[in-house]
Design a protein around this nucleic acid. Sequence first.
DNA 1: TAGTAACA
DNA 2: TAGT
Length: 207
Amino acid sequence: MAELAPGAFHFPSFLDAAAQRALAEEIAEVIAAAPLYVSTMPKTGAPMSVRMTNCGALGWISDKERGYRYEPRHPKTGQPWPSIPRRLLDIWNELARYPKPPEACLVNVYDETARMGLHQDKDEADFEAPILSLSLGADCRFKLGGTRRGDCAKAFALSSGDALVLSGPARMRYHGVDRILPTINTPLPPTLATLGVRVNLTLRRVT
DNA sequence: TAGTAACA
DNA sequence: TAGT
């Protein structure tokens, strides 16, 4: 475990190969029930390059008309989100050390060209609870900035099986994905490999 | 290529 | 401004 900044913890290879594979299969089931969709930017409607879905009581979505928000139902199917797999709740209990369970698990699927601009997670009502992120598949160049957009950002790789926790003073740090790295050390299982090369799971407390 | 600005 |  490395503390990148006060409250920001990187756990390289937190999940072993078997745990990664088992988690990936569960995420494939989530996607089967709640198909991937593309969120669009508030006001402009510009599409994000990442495709996403959610599990949990609430899911993060965005569209041109109503912007960033959490919703209890899938924007296309109108169905409630699938529940969060127990395996993920166990990881939350181990790493987040927060008394309440996560309400949202955002599933972001990246292809080779997908990126995620520097942003803060600030659509939640609860900024006390940590953000827990898990990576599967291709490595990415991840950037962790400060709490102001202009603060200098440190770049490092996130690999399959890595966990990242943003808690306490690091909870509101800007972060994003510069690019997907070309060499894939740990490919996603076939069911997910048809959809992209990297999957990121972000567990959050919302209310 | 990191950082900024302008834009819609 | 989780976009270009």
